[in-house]
């Protein structure tokens, strides 16, 4: 019965005359994503640009680069930008350093049940809201929190300030971005044939040499992709520095929010663009490194 109904439906679709032109198929494939991602992005960029140049000033007064000059001439803005980049950089290095062994371990797990458990644990930070997660960290890391109480019981030491400073912010950022680091590294590791490693070991290389000369170079593209993702996410992080920084951790994303709150749209736009361009510059450098390592491997 089902076969009888399937034939008449399938036949017209398979007929050569009914195949859509290539450009239409491409448009259908790309269109939804384009409208969802690219158009809003460019629309937002145009809006930011007009605000940053005061073009949306109702009086038409002060149109020009004054806001950009204000930003550039204030050392405070640069120190905050440096803070953002530094925190994102440290978070990226720590995340990748933690993610690499995790990915290597996941590659070797044979038990499906354990693998399922490991993936759930790994992705658990993404299953709860960012705000709840930040408050959870507050309870864990505060002076009277679980971590300090445990350290006090075990070692009899005074509470260590783990939150309302950069330490707490970086711990919480690494926690949430770790899954994004593990996935690309794990993906690259699965593409490296095990025979390479086995061949190197057969030729007498030590485990460290195999890692340094074979495994790491072959998985470097995954590491760089992970670093790109983590840096972009960390540089624009807002909720975590805001809730766990206690006012001590100043990032550009917080200044953007603050200026929006004060209806200083123009300066907020300038800062948002600077943050975006900085992130893009770092991503560009990482991508160049990626290509260089790829070229070196090919040669």
């Amino acid at each position: 019965m089902s076969g009888a109904t399937a034939t008449p439906l399938a036949a017209p679709l398979a007929a050569p005359g009914r195949v859509l032109p290539r450009w239409v198929r491409l448009a259908l494939l790309i269109g939804p994503g384009f409208f969802l991602i690219v158009l809003p992005f460019f629309g937002a960029m145009v809006m930011l640009g007009t605000y940053s140049l005061n073009l949306r000033d109702a009086n038409g007064m002060g149109m020009g680069l004054s806001l950009w000059m204000d930003f550039a001439s204030d050392g405070f803005n640069w120190s905050v930008l440096w803070n953002s980049v530094r925190i994102a950089g440290i978070s990226t290095i720590l995340s990748v350093a933690l993610a690499y062994p995790v990915a290597a371990a996941l590659l070797r797990v044979r038990s499906r049940a354990f693998l399922a458990f490991a993936y759930i644990a790994l992705f658990s930070p993404l299953l709860m809201s960012m705000v709840s997660r930040a408050y959870g960290w507050l309870l864990l890391l505060s002076d009277n929190g679980f971590v300090n109480q445990t350290l006090g019981l075990l070692f009899g030491i005074d509470p260590i300030r783990l939150v309302f400073n950069e330490t707490g912010v970086i711990i919480a950022i690494v926690h949430v971005v770790l899954p994004y680091a593990v996935l690309p590294i794990l993906n690259t590791m699965t593409q490296v044939p095990p025979v390479y490693r086995e061949a190197a070991l057969d030729l007498g290389a030590s485990g460290w040499t195999v890692f340094r000369r074979v495994t790491l170079p072959l998985t470097l593209p995954g590491v760089i992709v992970a670093a790109e993702i983590i840096f972009a996410l960390s540089a624009s992080a807002f909720v975590t520095p805001s809730l766990l920084g206690g006012g001590r951790v100043l990032t550009l994303s917080q200044l953007v929010y603050e200026n929006i709150g004060m209806i200083e749209w123009g300066m907020a736009a300038v800062q948002a663009i600077v943050l975006l361009v900085t992130a893009l510059a770092v991503l560009f450098v990482l991508e160049r490194v990626n290509r260089a390592t790829h070229a070196a491997r090919e040669s």
Binding site: L139, S142, D143, N144, F164, S242, L243, G246, G247, R248
Partner: peptide
């Protein structure tokens, strides 16, 4: 002198209730 600056009532409550 200043332990921290907070942005929400929940943060303030946690800080004060814990005695921090």
């Amino acid at each position: 002198q200043i332990h921290s600056l907070f942005t929400s009532n929940s943060q303030a409550q946690q800080l004060l209730v814990s005695g921090e």
